[in-house]
Design a protein around this nucleic acid. Structure first.
Lengths: 125, 125
DNA sequence: TCGGGAACTAGCCTGATGGGCAGGCCGCGG
DNA sequence: CCGCGGCCTGCCCATCAGGCTAGTTCCCGA
């Protein structure tokens, strides 16, 4: 994929509401002279939500204190074994909390969980 | 015909650079389904400057184009299998690139790699 | 007093992950 | 022409991850 040295404006859509984000993506996708940013790609400009209604809805994920501990360690790249050791618990319990986090953060794996948490501001990467 | 409860998306352009702002105004002005906000008008979404086109600095750890592709997918929680499928390569090659990323990012695992990359600004979560 | 949620532990099992090894294809520069 | 780096593929193997069911304490509120 080559997209270098092009005078195209890269636009990142950073909007929580999937419906609105999708509409914008559709509208902007066909505009020549500008391109939608791939997830994670460095964009020139960003489209952010302006009206408060659904501003930060999902950010109120209620994590238990223990889950937060585990989450922080996960973000450091710690394995279940490492988490267990540093928290003084068994590997099984570590996996138990990780599984709970995957569920609450709607993630498919620990990497996804950390990314989601970072996006939601639950943790400071 | 569309009779949705969503009339027109009002876009506010909040960008310091007059040249860039003007270009965006021109591009978006002709897009039906969305309208530029009048000065002071409450907008649905806002366009903000993300980072200058060439302001990518030297922070880029020399990652090959392919490695960047893999990194972005990793940040989305994609498994090696998913990466392989979406990139049209074999799982083995996906693992090859992942291993290379772990090395270059000085990470112990894919989660750690994504965290490091995010911290270094190589990717935007 | 009892029910229930949080935290913790445990075993089992399948698939994913990461490291190591060996090789092939292609384009660029010495 | 040949070497080298990027990219791709294959196989083996030890470990890890995540899902499953099931049990234990502790503490809080009905």
């Amino acid at each position: 994929m080559n997209e270098e040295a092009s005078p195209v404006i890269v636009v990142a859509i950073e909007i929580a509401d999937p419906v609105l984000a999708d509409r914008l993506a559709s509208l902007l996708g066909v505009v020549s002279g500008l391109r939608l940013a791939a997830p994670g790609e460095a964009a020139t400009v960003a489209l952010i939500s302006r009206d408060a209604p659904m501003a930060v809805d999902a950010s109120d994920i209620d994590l238990t204190p223990r889950e937060r501990d585990v989450l922080v360690l996960m973000a450091e790249g710690a394995s279940n074994k490492a988490i267990a050791r540093q928290l003084g618990i068994s590997v099984h319990t570590a996996k138990f909390h990780v599984a709970s986090l995957l569920d609450k953060l709607d993630a498919t794996g620990r990497t996804d969980a950390v990314a989601h948490a970072a996006r939601l501001g639950v943790i400071n990467l």
